[in-house]
């Protein structure tokens, strides 16, 4: 078996008295799409933010290719080969689509402090290649602020691929998209994973997307990992059925937002 690209061991985080994430362990292998699901407030976003360095874990290890990255700031973690897309897209709104990707390439080459040569002339070919890969080549000159939301998600994907990551973290990749766009974006993710042998961890609310695309699924509830395995096994799991079909649906307990 190939060694895991990401190994998480006993990750924990509490906010005040609330245990947002408790002793969660899992791993992601290259070329694998691992879905993290769970009801609102299960701890998915907290987990994600710890992996990317936005939040420092209270305990546990996060190993990227064998190296512990827990507690490193986000910009250092990215340099070690982790790409990220956000639940609500984060792009540079005062730049064109191409410039957004160029920015990531410039940063990758440690050229962000160059004061002279215009940025527009930097890495534009490579940026176009990445945009082409996500089907955005024609819109390279448009301002990011005017794109349709589905297109923004594609741009984010191109940005995330700019540093040739070994691991891609996608927080709700299809949130806010029309059904057809969802299918297309996830198909794209499938292809890219295979092409580049990237390990992908994603969270998702749309169960159709999860079961159609994830190679493995892990289920969080109240901060704990309650099930993990192939889609069929997770689908059959009693506890998971209970969470998704039982209490939460019956009582309508969905209003609680994910921990920050």
């Amino acid at each position: 078996m190939t060694p895991a690209v990401l190994e998480v061991v006993d990750l924990s985080k509490a906010f005040g008295g609330v245990r947002a994430v408790q002793n969660v362990s899992f791993s992601v292998r290259p070329g694998e799409l691992l879905a993290m699901i769970g009801p609102n407030g299960a701890g998915k976003t907290t987990c994600f933010n710890m992996l990317m360095g936005q939040i420092r874990p209270d305990a546990g290890a996060v190993r990227l290719k064998g190296r512990d990255i827990a507690g490193l700031p986000p910009h250092r973690i990215w340099r070690l080969g982790v790409g990220r897309t956000f639940q609500i897209t984060a792009t540079f709104s005062s730049m064109t689509v191409r410039e957004n990707v160029q920015m990531a390439l410039i940063s990758h080459r440690h050229a962000s402090r160059k004061l002279w040569r215009p940025a527009a002339e930097t890495d534009s070919g490579q940026a176009d290649a990445l945009l082409d890969r996500v089907g955005m080549a024609e819109q390279g000159d448009r301002a990011c602020s005017v794109l349709a939301y589905g297109d923004l998600k594609r741009v984010e994907l191109a940005i995330a691929l700019a540093n040739d990551p070994d691991l891609l973290l996608m927080d709700e990749p299809t949130a806010g998209m029309a059904p057809r766009e969802r299918i297309e974006l996830m198909r794209l993710a499938d292809e890219i994973v295979v092409e580049r042998n990237i390990g992908v961890l994603f969270t998702e609310h749309d169960m159709d997307v999860v079961f159609a695309h994830a190679h493995r699924i892990m289920v969080l509830n109240r901060g704990e990992l309650i099930a993990e395995g192939a889609p069929e096994a997770v689908r059959a799991n009693e506890q998971v059925r209970e969470i998704y079909l039982g209490s939460s649906v019956k009582t309508g307990e969905t209003g609680e937002a994910d921990a920050p």
């Binding site: 700031p73 910009h75 990215w78 956000f86 984060a90 792009t91 540079f92 709104s93 940005i159 540093n163």
Partner: peptide
Amino acid sequence: RDSPLRAAAIGID
């Protein structure tokens, strides 16, 4: 300025 979050997520200090 546009997105501190994204800037950090592409390795910018």
